[in-house]
Design a protein around this nucleic acid. Structure first.
Lengths: 205, 205
DNA sequence: TGTACATCAGTGAACGCGCGTTCACTGATGTAC
DNA sequence: TGTACATCAGTGAACGCGCGTTCACTGATGTAC
């Protein structure tokens, strides 16, 4: 893998990686094209060989983020094993873990202001992620007494919203906005209570 | 109220109002000191007679936001009337309504990156808002069977997280991230299911 | 009621900065023959 | 294996821009006597 020389080799991905570091280090707005280029060892102008501009780079980061996210969610749900309830709680935990482990992607996806429809590729990736969550909700749906069964898309949105809210309010930066509870516990108990409200019986009680 | 002349009269609040408009119009980052000054009919340098700088202005906006927010929440909860459950659902709706009606404040509070501890006044206002929610949770707590009663601060955090998540994901901008459900319905059903999980009986069934 | 003066809230010009983007260019690479 | 040439991925200089902030200033206001 010849890294040296006039030609970079894989500048496109190198720019993505540099931008990820910047976003993770310096917060949502601490990212500039010029600095990402510098970190990748390249002139700002070189960026334009690979991206249309600043927004386009962010969109690509978000796209990669949605791919990772969808994979993680899929893996965490694990076809509803060992139990519907445990699988869904695991999905919630995975959401939090994703936000922690991939802060740059997370910001690009949810806090950058870039529309999910900015590029077709991004829209596709985002749709896939939503699909994974809704499929999980559908699988869970069979364990809910029919008379209190809301549309799967609805309670997948509920779970997503609660997870997102916990991350935004209690896990990310937000210095001073603590509760006495770790975000992980908050999310786990929250989802647990919600699922009980749906009529699911907790396996241990 | 003499608006004309060399002296403005109430420039401090005029700057806050101008900044609010800008933030609401142009999104989280579409706010510059210079433009706010211009809208208030004043030179950018004049801002420094009233604020330490850009961040300080945002902090003041956030502070005013928390005050309004706390009042709204307090009013919505209405001492738990007519029923604990209805009061809490009303609180959730008020959260959404606040985000819609005061988008500038909302952004300054939750999306501007300004820490809640930036100024003592801001910290106080934010603490008051949290206090209102926790007091509501405490009142509700008495209607929950003791064996499934989590700490009030915990389920107030749950409700807040779910409300915040719904707002962020489904109500604010975020073009393309729709569900087939209006945010209001999503939030109401979500909180309803959660409260049922807590052991609260819905009055109508 | 009138004058002198301190205080205060603005002005306007200037600053240095780094940004995103463009442009004509050049050095490296790959391919046809 | 060697040469000519097209293609491509970088360079480097320059641009216009608007930002936040500073500074010495000046015009308006309020108060003491």
């Amino acid at each position: 893998m010849p890294k040296r020389g006039y030609h970079h080799g894989n500048l496109r991905q190198a720019l993505v990686d540099a931008a990820l570091e910047l976003i993770a280090d310096k917060g949502p707005q601490g990212f500039t094209l010029s600095e990402a280029a510098k970190r990748a060892g390249v002139t700002p102008a070189a960026v334009y060989r690979h991206f249309e501009g600043r927004e386009d780079l962010i969109a690509e980061i978000a796209r990669q983020g949605y791919e990772i996210f969808a994979d993680l969610m899929d893996y965490a749900f694990d076809d509803g094993k060992p139990s519907a309830m445990a699988a869904f709680e695991s999905t919630g935990r995975a959401y939090l873990a994703f936000a922690r482990k991939y802060p740059g992607h997370y910001v690009a996806m949810f806090e950058s202001g870039v529309s999910v429809n900015r590029t077709p590729e991004l829209a596709t990736a985002a749709a896939r992620a939503r699909g994974v969550l809704e499929a999980a909700a559908e699988a869970l749906s069979e364990h809910i007494p029919p008379e209190k069964r809301p549309p799967p898309a609805m309670f997948s949105a509920h779970i997503w919203a609660m997870s997102h809210g916990v991350v935004e309010l209690y896990a990310r930066g937000a210095p001073g906005r603590q509760t006495p509870f770790p975000p992980e516990d908050l999310l786990e108990t929250g989802i647990g209570i919600y699922l009980r409200g749906l009529g699911l019986i907790a396996p241990d009680g």
